[in-house]
Amino acid sequence: MIFSEAERNYLKTQQLGRMATVSRDGAPEVKAIGFTFDPETGTIDTGGPGLSSTKRWRNLQHNPLVSFIVDDMTPDEPGEVAPGWGRGVEIRGRVELLDDHEPPMAPDFFSREVIRIHPTRVVSWHLDAARPEIAARDVR
């Protein structure tokens, strides 16, 4: 299993993350993007309008390595890990660029292109009361 139960549960409740790519000349680019998570395959899909014409798509054609972070503030509620602190999951991996593919959301607005992230490393923090420390591991 790529993700722990706590990581899967967290990712299923989130809709926005930040994807970091690197351009051909080495310049970093970070974009906030919507995403879907498939707990069965452990992959992350994202789309957009005219996705193949974006800088992000071109960056990934040149260098398919990516870092994707989903995070928020831990609710200040009893039973939460580190209430009032941050929590999240960083996913490092390799992307698969799919064309003529059903978009993961907004099919009337998004183009038929998808960026699919296949995780190779997962780092998470403050998600699991049984393991409140930072959890980092290679997954493939």
Rank of each mutant, 00 (worst) to 15 (best):
62 H>E: 14
80 E>P: 03
94 R>Q: 13
93 G>Q: 08
74 T>S: 15
79 G>P: 04
85 W>S: 12
68 F>G: 01
64 P>T: 02
82 A>E: 15
63 N>F: 03
90 E>G: 02
68 F>W: 06
61 Q>C: 12
59 N>V: 08
79 G>H: 03
91 I>Y: 04
74 T>D: 09
77 E>A: 13
83 P>L: 14
64 P>E: 03
93 G>K: 02
61 Q>F: 06
67 S>E: 11
85 W>P: 01
80 E>S: 06
65 L>I: 00
64 P>S: 07
78 P>C: 00
72 D>T: 12
85 W>M: 15
92 R>Y: 08
75 P>Q: 02
68 F>Q: 00
66 V>M: 03
82 A>V: 06
75 P>E: 15
80 E>K: 10
73 M>P: 01
79 G>L: 09
66 V>F: 01
61 Q>D: 06
87 R>S: 05
91 I>T: 08
74 T>R: 07
71 D>H: 09
59 N>I: 08
75 P>K: 11
81 V>Q: 02
73 M>Y: 11
77 E>P: 00
67 S>G: 11
79 G>A: 06
88 G>N: 07
92 R>G: 08
82 A>N: 14
79 G>T: 05
76 D>K: 10
72 D>W: 09
62 H>C: 07
92 R>I: 02
84 G>V: 07
82 A>M: 13
65 L>G: 00
69 I>F: 03
80 E>N: 07
68 F>H: 03
85 W>H: 13
93 G>P: 13
70 V>Q: 07
61 Q>V: 12
61 Q>S: 11
90 E>S: 15
80 E>W: 05
73 M>V: 14
87 R>G: 04
63 N>A: 07
82 A>L: 10
87 R>M: 13
78 P>R: 02
88 G>Y: 06
93 G>V: 11
83 P>M: 14
59 N>R: 05
94 R>P: 05
59 N>L: 08
73 M>N: 08
93 G>S: 13
79 G>I: 01
